[in-house]
Every structure is written in C-alpha cells, then in structure tokens.
C-alpha cells in the first residue's frame, strides 16, 4: 500500500513539527525515548539474524532430514512455539545461570527472541520448501546434481521467493516482540517510555510517540519486504 508510506512520512513530519513547537516539553522525554529506539533497533537486527539462521536451518531439517536430525528440529520447533516468549526470556536470564551459563541482557534478549521466532520461521521455510514443485527435485536427480547443490542452487532460491511474505510478517512480529526485552533489564523504547511516563506524567504524548515509532518501523519493513519480494520473484514464472 503506497499511501501508508505517505502516512509514515507524514508522521515523521508531524514529530519534527511537534519537536519545534513544544521543544521545551519534548526535550524532557524525547532523548530518552530515542535512546531506547536505538536499543530496540540493535536488538531487532541481532535477533533477526538469529531468527533467519534458525528458521532456515530448522526449516530445511524439518523438510528434508530424517532420523535424529529431524527429531531435533521437531523438538526445537514444538518447544519454542509452545512456550511463551516472556517465559523463555526469563528462563534464559534467570535460570540459565543456575546451569552455569550467565548471559548478558543483550545476549539473553537476542537469543530468546531469535530462537522463539526461528521456530515459527522454520514452519514457514518448511512450507515454502514443500511448495517448490516436485519436478524441480526430480530434474536435479535426473541431472545428477549433488544433494547439497540441489538444496542451495535449485530448491532454496525458489523457496525463498515463496517464503518472503511470511518472513516479512514475522519480522514485524519480531520488532514488536522486542518490547519484551525490558524483562531482562534492557531499556528499549517501551521501557524508556514507561520510565519517562512515571517521571513526567505525559501519558498521551509519550505513548503516542512510542506507538508511532513502532508503526513506522513496521511500515518500513513492509515496504522493504514488498520490494524484496518483487526482486526475488521477478525471474520466476508466474504461477499461482
């Protein structure tokens, strides 16, 4: 949707205008919220990398592997999809030290979010790999292409084009989920705005800015995802 990118630009302009108009008021809480935004972006990017890696590995294993590797993938997917993200974060941060593995808040947040979303992404990856026509696999066997090349050169490039919309949705969910990292003592946008709200009691302004920031992040991801989908599916024949 093109108008939405216009809305985002409008919101940014509105924010800029707001900061000029009532600068003295905003100066109290905007810097803290923007510092939180930097943390949110950092956590989002790092956990996105873990999420993508895990979903591709577990997705391929779930679709193609057999025996112990398959059961490992199934176990990972079911456990991390079945538990709540907040519980996973708590478990990583407060219980893992009992097992002799103390994590920094950033590491716990990134691992928790990445592993949790990787389990959801693995199901999307599995579906996309399954959606690549069987003829492609048969053709590679007929051409005597090795299993590794079959996966990396033939199946995955086509599967990636299919999985992009689902992955874009999950990426937006992931950015939203970073709001939970305040549970492991990180000061992201959400926690910063709660703190600032308790200091200044400007609920509407502070939370309007926070919600807008998240909305803008989500719209940029959606916009980028549409462009990426266009780029990746250009060379594929139009089949529905």
């Amino acid at each position: 949707m093109v108008p939405r990118i216009a809305i985002v630009i409008g919101l940014a302009a509105f924010l800029a205008g707001l900061s000029v108009a009532t600068f003295a008021e905003l100066k109290m809480f905007l810097p803290a919220i923007l510092r939180g935004a930097v943390v949110t972006v950092q956590i989002s990017v790092l956990s996105w990398l873990v999420f993508m890696a895990m979903s591709l590995i577990a997705g391929v294993a779930r679709a193609k592997a057999s025996g112990a590797v398959l059961w490992l993938a199934v176990g990972y997917i079911e456990v991390f999809r079945g538990t709540s993200l907040l519980v996973i974060l708590f478990w990583l941060f407060f219980v893992m030290p009992e097992f002799g593995l103390t994590m920094s808040p950033v590491l716990a947040g990134v691992l928790g979010i990445g592993l949790n979303f990787g389990a959801y992404g693995a199901e999307i990856a599995r579906g996309a790999i399954g959606a690549v026509p069987r003829g492609q696999t048969e053709a590679t066997i007929a051409l005597n292409i090795s299993p590794w090349n079959r996966m990396t050169r033939i199946i995955l490039p086509q599967a990636i084009a299919i999985m992009i919309p689902g992955m874009v949705n999950l990426t937006i969910e992931l950015i939203k989920a970073t709001a939970l990292v305040s549970a492991v003592t990180l000061v992201d946008i959400t926690y910063a705005s709660v703190q600032q709200n308790q200091l200044h009691f400007r609920t509407v302004e502070i939370f309007a800015i926070t919600l807008m920031l998240y909305y803008c992040f989500a719209q940029f991801v959606r916009f980028g995802g549409d462009a990426l989908e266009e780029r990746f599916s250009r060379h594929l024949s139009k089949r529905v």
């Binding site: 939405r4 809305i7 709001a179 959400t190 709200n197 509407v204 939370f207 909305y215």
Partner: peptide, 25 residues
C-alpha cells in the same frame, strides 16, 4: 482499515501500558 493496521503494527505490551496509564487520566 487503518485502525486495524495500526493495532497490528504496534506491540501489545505498549498498548497494555498505554491503556493502563491512559484510562485513569
């Protein structure tokens, strides 16, 4: 449509905090 999109694009936790602090106002 825009309301639905806005709700879907923002974290539930922030919405909970917002309602929690806003309603008493």
């Amino acid at each position: 449509t825009e309301f639905i999109e806005f709700i879907r694009a923002t974290p539930l936790l922030v919405q909970i905090f917002f309602l929690f602090f806003l309603l008493p106002d």
